[in-house]
Design a protein around this nucleic acid. Structure first.
Length: 303
DNA sequence: TATCCAAGGTAAGTT
DNA sequence: AACTTACCTTGGATA
């Protein structure tokens, strides 16, 4: 077992592991205590989270926990760089906030979730998990990914337990639609299978979008089955380093209606451009994630 | 208890 | 290009 500690004070703008991983950005981590996200009962804010990586081709489990101003990781391999990469620990949150307009909603959201960072998911896992996200509750999207791991992922031993790596494109391409529907994927089942086959066959690779300008990259990703503009934006923002991407989901649309009504231009492309500009451009996706988390967590009393 | 409805939308068919 | 409609499943809201 290898391990390492990262001092939160060394990270510009701080770090909050819980809000980073439980804000609906990534469905590729899970809590070691088995408790669902959004279940705050008996929780002190220092839960351990697990995920899997493939640093040298073979999958390994990584455990991360935040306590007393420190982020501690443990794994069978040296996971220091993987942790920094996956949790975007090198992002400068001070610079990002400075580049964000100081309207009341954004100020409140940034204050409420200080230290929340974007994630950087592996491209294929991000692609599949957001295909699964269509018209689906956050907790169930998360459950689906766990089901996919258990059913099709390669077993990995860690700390006396058996976990499963996220399935490879080939593993999901080999699944039958019926198997996927049995995991409650519903109409998303054929989307996942067909997209996985496209990647497994080398017909397309979501990571290739990285070489394109933002809007072209978004168009390129919609080539995958089950991927429209919104899911494409999620992959660009949460995996491919397009920090300006603003996924227009139901919550952001609600926010636009209430706070930025002039940004509603009737179609995705033009509304996207308008809200992206309003949220500061370069880091608009970061601002989007803070707003998403704030609005969604205040749905019963607010909105 | 039964029914309705929205959930981090997309694909396919019409106008 | 803009507008409709169908699509799986489920937990919580509503009657």
């Amino acid at each position: 077992m290898e391990s390492g500690v990262i001092d939160v004070d060394s990270l510009a703008g701080g770090f909050d592991l819980q809000s980073t991983l439980e804000s609906g950005q990534s469905y590729l981590w899970w809590r070691e205590d088995g408790r669902d996200y959004e279940d705050d009962s008996q929780y002190g804010g220092d839960a351990s989270y697990l995920t899997t990586t493939r640093e040298d081709g073979t999958p390994a489990v990584v455990r991360v926990r935040q306590t007393d101003g420190q982020v501690r990781w443990e794994s069978a391999v040296d996971a220091e760089s993987a942790v920094r990469r996956r949790l975007r620990l090198d992002d400068d949150l001070v610079e990002i906030r400075d580049a964000t307009p100081a309207d009341e909603l954004l100020e409140t959201a940034f204050d409420t979730y200080r230290g929340m960072r974007l994630v950087r998911d592996p491209p294929f896992g991000a692609l599949v998990s957001f295909i699964c996200s269509a018209q689906m509750h956050v907790t169930r999207i998360h459950g689906m990914q766990q089901s996919l791991r258990a059913a099709f992922g390669t077993p990995v031993e860690f700390d006396g337990e058996t976990y499963h790596a996220y399935p490879t494109p080939a593993q999901l391409a080999d699944a039958t639609e019926e198997q996927l529907r049995d995991l409650s994927l519903g109409y998303r089942a054929p989307y996942v299978k067909r997209t996985a086959k496209m990647v497994a066959d080398g017909e397309a690779d979501p990571a290739d979008a990285r070489e394109l300008p933002y809007e072209e990259a978004r168009d390129a990703l919609t080539e995958f089955v089950g991927v429209g503009d919104k899911v494409a934006d999620c992959v660009l923002l949460f995996s491919l380093d397009y920090l300006e991407a603003v996924p227009l989901d139901t919550w952001i649309r609600k926010t636009i209606t209430e706070y930025y009504p002039d940004c509603d231009r009737g179609n995705y492309t033009d509304t996207s451009r308008a809200i992206r500009e309003r949220l500061g451009g370069k880091y608009a996706g970061y601002a989007q994630t803070y707003v998403f988390q704030f609005i969604r967590n205040h749905r019963s009393t607010d909105v």
